[in-house]
Design a binder for these strands. Structure first.
Lengths: 111, 111
DNA sequence: TTGACATGAAACTAAATGGTTTCGTATAAT
DNA sequence: ATTATACGAAACCATTTAGTTTCATGTCAA
């Protein structure tokens, strides 16, 4: 067993766009909860809950520094996702599928 | 715009373990709803709803054959996931992270 | 034509999710 | 010592989710 009990898995954790944005934000630097929540239109408490879910999935690490809690990305669990995805690689190795994707590329890859 | 309205995105679609199992099942062969639901402990109607969500995310295609509806995998939208994941590759290119992953590899990659 | 099969829509339910506000506690600053 | 800051726990709320059962419709078989 890893540190925190895995109530949430990585698939569920990244399902929410706010949490994906959090991961993106924490990729570059370790940040305190207050600083993080500056980037979102929701309350600090709501951000804090998202961070807890990410922590349960092992996707972020937290560290207490004085009165603040700083979070940083922990990318390792994303390997599970990569691994899951690997099974389907054979399907899009097909060049036609690739082409099809980039032609009808109407939705921008947000977050 | 693609065929079905994208009410559900691929991240949300694969968040559910039942839906991941569905994708896995439909990777090999096109199957009717009744046949598909034989593989699950839930009702046919429940399976049907999961299939609709997958279809909305573009991950399955459906085809009417007589009185049955057959579903098959449509892997293209998984490229969005792969693309999202690519951003984080630089973090686990670190060999130590890889090692860490395989050492504490306690959870099997289910589904 | 009558009956069986395949499916999805509809209505409903319990639980999970994403959000809020309020409050207690710990740490820092004056 | 007092005040301000940083945070999470708690209680609450609305919406979504994952499931159910029932029903109507379309298609195949006898």
């Amino acid at each position: 067993m890893s540190a925190l009990s895995k109530k949430h898995d990585v698939f569920q954790a990244i399902a929410d766009p706010t949490r994906r944005k959090l991961l993106n934000l924490l990729a570059d630097e370790e940040l305190s909860v207050t600083l993080i929540s500056k980037h979102f239109p929701i309350s600090r408490t709501a951000v804090s809950k998202h961070l807890r879910i990410l922590a349960e999935a092992g996707l972020v690490q937290k560290r207490k520094v004085g009165r603040e809690t700083r979070y940083r990305l922990e990318p390792t669990p994303l390997l599970e996702l990569k691994n899951w995805l690997a099974f389907y690689e054979r399907f899009w190795d097909n060049k036609l599928v690739m082409l099809q994707h980039y032609i009808e590329h109407d939705r921008k890859t947000d977050v």
